[in-house]
Design a protein around this nucleic acid. Structure first.
Lengths: 236, 236
DNA sequence: ACATTAATGGTCATAGAGACAATAATTAAT
DNA sequence: ATTAATTATTGTCTCTATGACCATTAATGT
């Protein structure tokens, strides 16, 4: 039999296949806390619960797994660019009542000031992490969020990735606070500033921000931060 | 409609779903070179080509994606333990002629002396990386191997992971050669030895190996290596 | 014995991190 | 205007792991 004939007779529906989805943890910074965008499920299964945005890969629309993730991000936030990273693929027979299911987990970091409220819509809400901890989400989405946060936390020790969460202009102290929140500990201002500045990941805008006391210089991302790895991780 | 009724009526075959597989790059060290285990495909598609071991998730047997990978590893090498790590999930409509397909890529590091020849079987062969480069493998498996090797290479700069490739006893010079091969550059013996020794990732066995000149002390892995990250990566 | 060679150790310079003190630029109060 | 309080920013020191390079050690072969 030729490959052509083989393919003609091949029907995926002759086999037991897993459910296959893409889920996204879209993270942003709201009032000094990490927030995750959740959508309210109107349909079974897990009807009435909150869930990560995501769903089945659209075989017509999506040219790749990552493209599916980008589509979800765009649908939910209106953002067509932004940091997006695949975290892990989790599959088991238990995680969805419909049967063996597998999800490719991504996370995205967005600057909340660039997300239009209208984009989010009434089915979606930003949830601070602290609130999510007390809430049973749909499927295994509590676990998925933990996995994504763990990845972000790991990356914050050896990259400047959290810059992706910041607005266009920010002070270094503000940036340090974000790192501290993600890492769950305080950092030495001097060491932190040296790292970020000598790596050339931010540059001064020339403006400054007066928040009561000595004004702080404002910086912007140089967009070099995504691939740049520090030669040493932040120590314990 | 209750969730029970919903699930009763749910049929995955009503939807277009991607093909979903797990593929494994099983890496070993043979005569000083990295080898990958390939299987010869007797069936369409890609009949006659060599491919990574892998295939569809068995919804009956596999309790998780990782369990599927462990099953493949066991089938091909007889090893039920060993280092196994998920690398990335790659999906697109192009990579398999049967349609939109997605594969969860894993890699495993095995000590070749613990793999029985009989286990490998006549359908499987160890291929050195250099030989694979000149060979068009099935599907996008050349790319998958590149991705797995890139991951191993990255990890070799900040973990002692390549120890997993070594036999029970080995000299530090032998270990250094393995790192050098993976990284594609030479390392300073002193710096390398300090790293590995002070991190407590290997311990002396008390034996030594006489290979012509001054005998070298033999070491074994302390099995602390999987999770141990060096506080600094090897420099460029 | 001596040259040879691989294994191993000694010493120093360096970069980047932590610790902590010092200085600078504001506002608020006197 | 002066001073206190507060936050931003910098100076300087120590520490550690690495790279570089050289010395020493323990075998082999002639």
């Amino acid at each position: 039999m030729s490959e052509k004939e083989f393919l003609k007779n091949y029907n995926i529906h002759d086999f037991d296949v897993p459910l296959c989805t893409v889920d996204m943890a879209i993270l942003s910074l709201i009032e000094g806390e990490l927030n995750v965008l959740l959508v309210h499920r109107d349909e079974h299964p897990s009807r009435g619960k909150w869930a990560l945005p995501g769903g089945f890969i659209d075989l017509k629309k999506d040219k790749s797994t990552e493209a599916a993730a980008h589509r979800k991000l765009k649908e939910k936030t209106g953002l067509s660019s932004g940091y997006l990273e695949q975290v892990e693929t989790i599959g088991s027979p238990k995680r969805d009542p419909r049967g063996w299911s597998l999800t490719v987990l991504y996370y995205a970091l967005v600057d909340i000031t660039r997300v239009k409220v209208a984009d989010v819509g009434n089915q979606s809400e930003w949830w601070p992490l602290s609130k999510i901890e007390k809430q049973k989400l749909a499927f295994d989405h509590n676990v998925l969020i933990d996995i994504a946060i763990d990845r972000l936390r790991a990356k914050a020790t050896y990259t400047a990735l959290p810059i992706e969460l910041m607005p266009k202009e920010f002070t270094l102290t503000e940036l340090q606070k974000v790192f501290e929140m993600i890492l769950g500990r305080t950092l030495q201002a001097k060491a932190f500033r040296n790292r970020v500045l000598t790596a050339g990941m931010v540059e001064e805008t020339g403006n400054s921000k007066i928040a009561g006391k000595r004004p702080a210089k404002l910086f912007r991302s140089t967009k070099a931060d995504r691939d740049t790895y520090f030669s040493r991780p932040l120590q314990e």
